[in-house]
C-alpha cells in the first residue's frame, strides 16, 4: 500500500465525502484509491452479512472479497437504477447462495447439520469465557445459540431475517436486494422469525424462568 492509500481516499482533496456512485465512477476511470475507499466502506457490513448467512467465517471472508472483485470487474454494468449498496448486497447475497448450494452438493447435508457437529468454525468470536463476568458469558452464549438457530432456518427466510434484523435494512431495500415483492419479503421475514423463536424458546426459558421476577 502506498502513501496515498494510508489516507482515507474518500475524504481527500476538498475533504468532502464522495458518494458510492462517485467512487465507483472514479474507480472505473482507473482511480485505484476510489476502489479502496469502496472496500473500506463496505467490507465490515458485507463480511458480517455473509457470515451470518452461511455461518462459516473463512468462507464468508472469501465471498466478501469475491464480492468486491466482482464490483471492480463488472462495475460498468451498474446503471444506477438502484442504490450502489443495494447492488453490492445483491452480489454478496447471490454469491453466498451459490456457496450454500455448492456446500450442499459437496457434502450432501445442510450447513446447520455441518456446523452443529463442529463448533470450531463459530469459535472465532468467543475466544475464552472462563474469566468473563456472568453477563458477558450470557451474551456470548446467546450469540452462539442465535447463530446456531439461524443456521437451522431455511436459507430463503434466513437471508431476509439477517438483512432486516442484523443489517437493519428497510423492507424496500431488502426487496431490491433479493429482487422479491415487498409482501413476500414481509411474510418471509415473519416466518423466519417464527422459526427462530421455536429454536430459541428453550434458551429464553432457561435464561429467564417464569418465576424469576
Amino acid at each position: 500500500m502506498d502513501q496515498e492509500r494510508q489516507i482515507d481516499p474518500a475524504v481527500q482533496g476538498n475533504r468532502t465525502i464522495s458518494t458510492d456512485e462517485e467512487l465507483l465512477q472514479r474507480s472505473l476511470n482507473g482511480d485505484e484509491a476510489a476502489f479502496v475507499a469502496i472496500v473500506r466502506r463496505y467490507k465490515d457490513p458485507i463480511t458480517n452479512f455473509i457470515y451470518r448467512f452461511i455461518g462459516n467465517y473463512d468462507d464468508a471472508v472469501d465471498i466478501a472479497q469475491e464480492t468486491f472483485v466482482r464490483v471492480h470487474r463488472f462495475g460498468h454494468t451498474f446503471l444506477g437504477e438502484v442504490k450502489f449498496s443495494t447492488w453490492l448486497y445483491t452480489i454478496a447475497s447471490n454469491l453466498a447462495k451459490s456457496e450454500l448450494k455448492r456446500y450442499r452438493r459437496r457434502y450432501g447435508m445442510s450447513l446447520a447439520d455441518a456446523f452443529s457437529k463442529s463448533d470450531d468454525d463459530q469459535s472465532w468470536d468467543v475466544p475464552d469465557d472462563s474469566f468473563m463476568p456472568d453477563e458477558r458469558v450470557d451474551r456470548t452464549r446467546i450469540a452462539q445459540e442465535v447463530q446456531k438457530a439461524l443456521m437451522k432456518v431455511s436459507p430463503t427466510y434466513r437471508e431476509m431475517v439477517i438483512l432486516r434484523d442484523v443489517q437493519q435494512m428497510s423492507y424496500e431495500e431488502i426487496a431490491a436486494v433479493t429482487e422479491t415483492e415487498m409482501g413476500t419479503v414481509k411474510s418471509r421475514i415473519n416466518r423466519g422469525r417464527a422459526q427462530l423463536q421455536t429454536e430459541l424458546r428453550g434458551l429464553y426459558n432457561e435464561l429467564f424462568p417464569t418465576n424469576d421476577v
Binding site: 451474551r139 427462530l196 429467564f208
Partner: peptide, 30 residues
C-alpha cells in the same frame, strides 16, 4: 416475549469483522 428476545439478540450479535489483510487481499486479486 420470545419474539422480542430473538430480535434483540439478532440486533446485538457481535459484528464479524474481516481480517486486517482483507483490503490487501482484494487489491491483489484485482
Amino acid at each position: 416475549e420470545v419474539a422480542v428476545f430473538v430480535r434483540t439478540a439478532l440486533s446485538k450479535l457481535p459484528e464479524a469483522l474481516p481480517p486486517d489483510t482483507f483490503e490487501q487481499d482484494v487489491l491483489t486479486k484485482v
